[in-house]
Design a protein around this nucleic acid. Sequence first.
DNA 1: TTTATGGCTGTCA
DNA 2: ATGACAGCCATAA
Length: 114
Amino acid sequence: MTRSPLEGTLRERIFAVVARIPAGRVASYGHVAVLAGSPGAARAVGWALASTPDGNNLPWQRVVNAGGRISSRGEPAWEAVQRALLEAEGVTFDASGRIDLDRYGWEPDLEPDA
DNA sequence: TTTATGGCTGTCA
DNA sequence: ATGACAGCCATAA
């Protein structure tokens, strides 16, 4: 049995990674992909989140693309919702609607809780 | 097994 | 700084 420490599909790992993102913090797709074990699979991450059923406790809203910008899933209003959720968590947006990843960029080794 | 799509990323103009 | 093009990985049909 090939019991891998990271079994299941990438989607499962992505869920775990995103679920570990603390409130008031954001991570980029590429970053999540790396944490999930598949660097470069940023698109796959986005797809995994898009495949995420709403109603769970998965803070997909804390996942933004590389420049800290918000993406949309086809619903232009959705990104506004995501932005509102992040602002509600304490994340501030730039005048262009960008997040300061230098300040809110989450890293598994630099949790603000400590 | 192959084809097509997708909440992306990085580089060039 | 903004806009456009091509590349990459994974999932679903």
